[in-house]
Amino acid sequence: MKILTKGQYYGNPNSEVSFDGVLLSHYSYTGDKTDWHYHENPYFMYVLRGNMMDCNKKAKSLCPPGSLMFNNWQEVHFGSKHSDRASGFHLEFERSWLKKMGVSQQLLEGSQLIEHPRVHLAFAKLFHEFAMPDSYSVVSVEVLLLQICEVLSKIKEANTAETPSWIGHLKELLHYDSHDFSLQYLSNQLDVHPVHISRAAPKYLSMSLGEYIRQQKIKKAIPLILDPTRSLTEIAYQVGFADQSHFNRVFKSFFKMNPSVYRGTKKISLG
């Protein structure tokens, strides 16, 4: 079984930045399929372009653009490419970094797709710091990584608590349904009273329902923004905003910049 050490991935490396135990890298994926392997360190793969599939001994996960996949150290898996061109942004951290920062090594186990929009937004910010660094990028990367660990810790706590069965269905609707959400629509789909949904959602989503929906829309927009063939107006409508002006305001509230400025990140070739 092949083990990939720090900074080793299948494909062609485009760029790499190291921050004291944390490694950020951008790879173009070339081969149609990798060998079975595992990694020395835990890492995340954020798919920037193309369709990938991550396969381990328990599951196969389709990873289109915008997908965020976590693979823990010593998790045996292989990857396959399902489009002509594909690339990804990697965040890898040494276990010594987790210990130094007081983060549990059991924060995440195995391999899994990460769906929570707050984690995705943090990764979008990480990619921007990576693509367009300045003198504050080192501290920004560490802060963002700690924020990611904090959110993942809360998700793990919520998953271990006794959770109503309809919460899983709610998350599926919010992640995959393209409907223009309203409390009444969700109530009809879940067969749960609207008031109960609005009161219970913050406990299991770690934020209000409205905030989760806004973050989910921005999460869907990020890979589209990085595609230069799409206009921002088209993207705004596609992810569920009434117009580009509303899209701009919500995006700026999370990123402190307009989507047109963030789009400058695409100066890195996506492979």
Rank of each mutant, 00 (worst) to 15 (best):
M1H: 10
M1D: 09
K2I: 13
Y9I: 12
E16G: 07
V17I: 12
V17M: 15
S18Y: 15
F19A: 02
S25Q: 01
T30M: 08
K33L: 14
D35Q: 13
H37L: 01
H37V: 03
Y38K: 09
N41S: 05
P42I: 00
F44R: 00
L48G: 07
R49A: 07
M52L: 15
M52R: 09
C55S: 14
K57H: 09
P64I: 01
L68M: 09
F70P: 00
N72H: 01
W73L: 11
E75M: 09
H77C: 04
G79E: 10
R85D: 13
A86N: 05
A86T: 10
L91D: 00
E92R: 05
E94N: 06
K100D: 02
K100P: 00
L113G: 08
E115L: 09
A122N: 13
A122E: 04
A124S: 15
A124Q: 05
H128G: 06
F130Y: 08
F130Q: 03
A131E: 02
A131L: 07
M132Q: 11
D134H: 06
Y136Q: 14
V138T: 13
V143A: 11
L144I: 14
Q147P: 01
E150K: 12
V151R: 06
K156E: 04
N159W: 04
E162A: 15
T163P: 03
L170K: 00
L170A: 01
E172G: 11
L173A: 07
D177L: 07
D177R: 10
S178P: 09
S182R: 00
S182V: 02
L183D: 12
Q184H: 10
Y185N: 03
L186E: 05
L190W: 03
V192D: 00
V195F: 06
V195D: 12
I197R: 01
P202R: 03
K203T: 04
Y204T: 04
Y204P: 01
L205H: 00
M207W: 01
R214S: 08
K217C: 12
I222C: 05
P228R: 08
T229A: 14
T229D: 05
T233E: 12
A236E: 02
Y237A: 15
Q238F: 08
Q238D: 14
G240C: 06
D243Y: 10
F247H: 01
R249L: 13
R249E: 14
V250D: 11
K252E: 14
S253D: 11
F255N: 04
V261P: 02
V261Y: 08
Y262I: 06
Y262Q: 05
G264D: 15
K267P: 05
S269F: 10
L270H: 06
L270M: 07
